[in-house]
């Protein structure tokens, strides 16, 4: 009796919002699948952590190298309570956000400049290709000398890694706007800057937003590498420091925090994109 009431309730939950019995069956199938996917994901995570913990505990794997979830957790909690973790997280987050923001801004501005003059775009084309092909991380030593061994060099790395690709992608999207839109604006007597403001820029806006998603990832690469090279703070620094003193638990703590922060930043850009582009088809 009790059991049927319960399944009835679950059934109701699975078919909520259904308009007909066919729709209900479809919704039920879809939702059961969703629930199964989630449950499997959670199961895999716990299984992995449990296996890791057991393997480390029973010394199947090298404890020094692989640490264990419980040790990582307790180090995380003690660093968090000690307040030092906040300093590192804040430093890296600020650097990443700034590098990401400046890289996107400079890249977009460069793209505008190149779009403005066909001559300039013809001239800079081979240079862009070379700069794009070059691994920006290799510029690290130059940044350290140029900007000093602090935040400057780290942010420069974050900017360098995203600015060229942003320029190329955004410029390409400017060029790909249907020329008939430009013709339309010209029939009203639009100037070049009006064509840019009213047509080219808003039409390329979705591309610019989607480069943001790429740049979030690139900024993290740039900042972490930058911190490897010079810093005294930050999550990248914690990784290098942990490696130098052979405290791999510290390395894992830092890695997990980076993974979580990067995911949140990426999700923030995705929801920004959804919000800004919701009116377009």
């Amino acid at each position: 009796m009790n059991k049927t009431a319960k399944t009835g309730l679950f059934e109701k939950y699975l078919t909520r919002g259904a308009e007909s019995s066919i729709h209900a069956a479809y919704l039920k199938k879809y939702r059961i699948n969703r629930i199964l996917v989630r449950l499997t994901q959670i199961f895999l995570l716990f299984a992995f952590l449990l296996l890791w913990e057991t393997a480390s505990h029973k010394q199947w794997i090298n404890q020094l190298l692989f640490s264990s979830p419980s040790e990582i957790w307790s180090l995380f909690v003690s660093m968090l309570l000690g307040g030092e973790l906040t300093v590192h997280i804040t430093a890296t987050l600020l650097e990443t956000i700034l590098g990401f923001f400046l890289g996107t801004l400079f890249g977009t501005l460069a793209a505008v400049g190149i779009w403005w003059s066909r001559f300039v775009s013809d001239v800079v084309d081979p240079y862009l290709v070379v700069l794009n092909g070059m691994p920006k991380v290799a510029l690290g030593p130059i940044f350290i000398v140029a900007f000093g061994g602090g935040y400057g060099a780290i942010i420069a790395m974050g900017v360098a890694i995203s600015v060229i690709i942003t320029t190329i992608v955004v410029y390409t999207s400017f060029r790909e706007v249907d020329p008939n839109y430009i013709k339309l604006a010209r029939t009203f007597g639009a100037s070049k800057s009006q064509i840019f403001q009213k047509v080219i820029f808003p039409a390329s806006f979705p591309t610019i937003i989607s480069t943001l998603k790429v740049n979030v990832g690139l900024a993290w690469v740039g900042i972490i590498v930058g911190e490897f090279l010079v810093s005294k703070f930050g999550l990248g620094y914690l990784i290098i420091y942990g490696f130098q003193v052979f405290n791999f638990t510290l390395v894992y703590v830092s890695l997990f925090i980076i993974a979580i922060c990067a995911t949140f930043m990426y999700q923030a850009v995705v929801s920004l994109e959804k919000h800004l582009l919701k009116q377009r088809d």
Binding site: D178, Y181, K183, L184, T187, G189, K198, A203, R280
Partner: peptide
């Protein structure tokens, strides 16, 4: 400004 031009397609700006 004396001229208004209608193109083959509407070319409305979707944003």
């Amino acid at each position: 400004r004396k001229i208004g031009y209608m193109l083959q397609q509407d070319y409305l700006l979707n944003w």
